[in-house]
Design a protein around this nucleic acid. Sequence first.
DNA 1: CTAGGTGCAAATTTTTTGCACATGC
DNA 2: GCATGTGCAAAAAATTTGCACCTAG
Lengths: 130, 130
Amino acid sequence: MQSKRNFSAKREAIYETLVSTDIHPSAEWVYEQLKPKMPGLSLGTVYRNLAVFKEMGLARSVGVINGQERFDAKMTQHPHFICQKCFRIIDIPKGYNVLDKNAYTMIERECDVEIELHSITFYGLCKKCC
Amino acid sequence: MQSKRNFSAKREAIYETLVSTDIHPSAEWVYEQLKPKMPGLSLGTVYRNLAVFKEMGLARSVGVINGQERFDAKMTQHPHFICQKCFRIIDIPKGYNVLDKNAYTMIERECDVEIELHSITFYGLCKKCC
DNA sequence: CTAGGTGCAAATTTTTTGCACATGC
DNA sequence: GCATGTGCAAAAAATTTGCACCTAG
C-alpha cells in the first residue's frame, strides 16, 4: 500500500509520529507509540527510518539525552530549551534563533571556517521543575 | 602520592590531558593518550573521572559525535564550531556567545522556563574540509 | 583501619547490521 | 523480477558497574 509521500505504510507512520509530537522523541519512544497500533513493527525499522529522514532532510537530531538520540521533524530553525532536571526538550520560537547579523562573517574570518548554520540551546528548569 | 588538587595521580593525569587539549576529546582519546605513559590505566577509570569532573564543574559535555561523548574542560562559556565533514570541534571566542540582551527574560516569560545558560554551536566546513 | 580510587571483566544500553523474506510496481 | 522495506536476532559500540584489591593518610 502506498501513502502520501510514496512512503511505505510503516515509514509514513513513523514520520507522522515524529512530526506530530513536540517532545523531540527518541527512537524507542516512537517505537513504543506505534507498536500497539502496528504490532509487526520492529525497533530496527524505526532506527533505519529515522536515519532515512535525517538523510532526506526531513528530521534532525536535537542531541543525545541520557544516552538516547532525540529527534525533531519540525525543520524550521529554532532554539531548544532543555530542562536540567526532567530533561524535557522544549521548542523556543524561531524568532529567538538570532545572532548579531555580522557574527557569521566575523567568525568565518577569525576562525577560518565556513558556517552553514547554528543552533542555540538553553538550559535551566522548566515550569514543572522550578 | 598526592598532586596539586588533592587528586590521585591518575585523576590528575586525566584532568591535565583534558584541560590541555583543544580537540574536545572523547573518553577513549584521553585513554589512548595516557595509556603509554601510564600502562596501568583502565578505560573505566577515565570514564569514572570524566563523570567526576562534570559533577565538580571542572568539565562539561560538548555533545555526542559519532556516538561518542566529547568533553571540554575550558569552562569559559564559548560557542563551538563542528565541521560537518571531519567532525572536528573548534572553539569560537567567547565574545560570540552573545544573544540579544533581553532574550533570557523574554523567553522565560514566553515559554515559562527559567534559563540558566545557553550554548551556541555552529556547523559548516573547517578550512581543511572546504 | 578507613575511605576513596582503580583494574578488570562482565553487564547494560543503545544503535547498527546481515540475511531471509515480503511487498509494490 | 527488481528494488526497496522490514523482522528478527546477532553484533557492535559506548558506557557503566560489581567486586576485590590497593594505597594514602
